[in-house]
Each structure stands twice: as C-alpha cells, then as structure tokens.
C-alpha cells in the first residue's frame, strides 16, 4: 500500500437508529476494535458496541471517602493534637463541629475525581486523532453518526470491511489516514 498507512475505516450514518443497527451487525460479524462517534450519547450504543462498564464510579467513591477521611483527620489533628485549646473544658475532639468541613472536602475531592478522572480515563486532552483527518468527520460533533473500525482488528480487511459497512446503509465510508 502506498501513501500514509491506514488507521481504519469510518462509516457515516444519518440517524442514531441506523448507527445502532450497524453497530449490532458489525459486532455480530466478529469485529471487536470498533468505536462510534456521535453528537450526543445514543441510548443502547454502549451495549451494542460491547463496552464494559467503567470504573469511574468506584474511583469517585474512593475520592469522596479519602476527602472525608482526610478532612476529618486534618481537623481532629489540628484541634486535638497539634494545638489543643481548652475552652471551658469542652472536648478537644468536638466531632460534630468537624462535620461541615468533612462533608465539603468529600464533595470536593469526589467531584474533582469525577471530572478529572473522566478526562484521564478518556485520555483527554488528546489534540490529535487520525479520525480528524476525515473532512466529513467534523459532523460527528454536529448531526451525523459515525462508526469506526480500527485496521488492527483481527477481522479487518480493507475491501471486505468497507463493503460490509456500505451494505449496512452507510451514507459514506471513508478511509482514515494515520
């Protein structure tokens, strides 16, 4: 093959339903390195593409618990150990007074984990991706639905895969340069 090496193929669909049907068929045909690019989350697409559930909720829970534990520890340590101040014999570990900050830090760390963890797991920021080489792909963030098959897929075969995508009602199938 001359020219730039191929990253894979991308097929353009006009409706989410067409994309969903195509995703099912492509997976049934045995393809595994597939992804879809859509302007909004299409219901059922994750299942159609066979993605596993994400670890993100567990990460966020861990973050929130760490935030709470760290927040409480900080207050308990500062008020009870580092600089104990006896005010009228009140207990140094006045835990009810530590709850608001404990809660705020749980939310803060949990929320930051949710936002930054999502970006990290998605490998964003990612300024370049081969799909951006396809001019029509600009509509993936607007009004068209794309199904991409990676050339490294075991079943990938330039002609046959393109034909399969055409057969699924793709409006256009483009080769993606690397």
């Amino acid at each position: 093959m001359t020219g730039p090496r191929m990253w894979g193929l991308v097929a353009e669909f006009e409706s989410p339903d067409a994309l969903l049907a195509a995703a099912h068929r492509v997976r049934e045909a045995g393809y595994r390195r597939i992804d879809a690019c859509v302007p909004f989350p299409v219901e059922g697409l994750t299942e159609a593409l066979g993605f596993r559930p994400t670890w993100l909720p567990l990460l966020v829970l861990t973050g929130a618990l760490l935030g709470a534990a760290g927040g409480f520890f900080m207050q308990w340590y500062a008020m009870g150990v580092w600089y104990p101040l006896n005010v009228g014999g009140r207990p140094l570990n006045s835990w009810p007074m530590f709850i608001p900050i404990t809660f705020e830090l749980a939310v803060l760390v949990g929320g930051l984990t949710a936002a930054l963890g999502m970006l990290a797991l998605n490998r964003l920021p990612m300024p370049y991706h081969p799909l951006f080489n396809v001019p029509r792909f600009a509509r993936a963030t607007q009004d068209r639905f794309f199904l991409a098959i990676d050339a490294r897929d075991a079943r990938f075969e330039r002609g046959a895969t393109a034909e399969l995508l055409h057969g699924l009602g793709a409006a256009e199938v483009s080769e993606v340069a690397r």
Binding site: V107, L124, P127
Partner: peptide
Amino acid sequence: ALGWRGSARHWQRYEIAYLLLAGLATPL
C-alpha cells in the same frame, strides 16, 4: 475542547461523570 470527538467510549464515562457530579452537587 481537549480533543473531544464524541467517541461512544468517551460518552459512556462522560455521562457517568456528569451524573455523579450532579449527585455530588445536589447535597452540596
């Protein structure tokens, strides 16, 4: 935009993150 391309894999995590942020922002 951080290189967002609307990947279904990204949307999957994105939706979860958005929902969790909403869940955290509510008591906040």
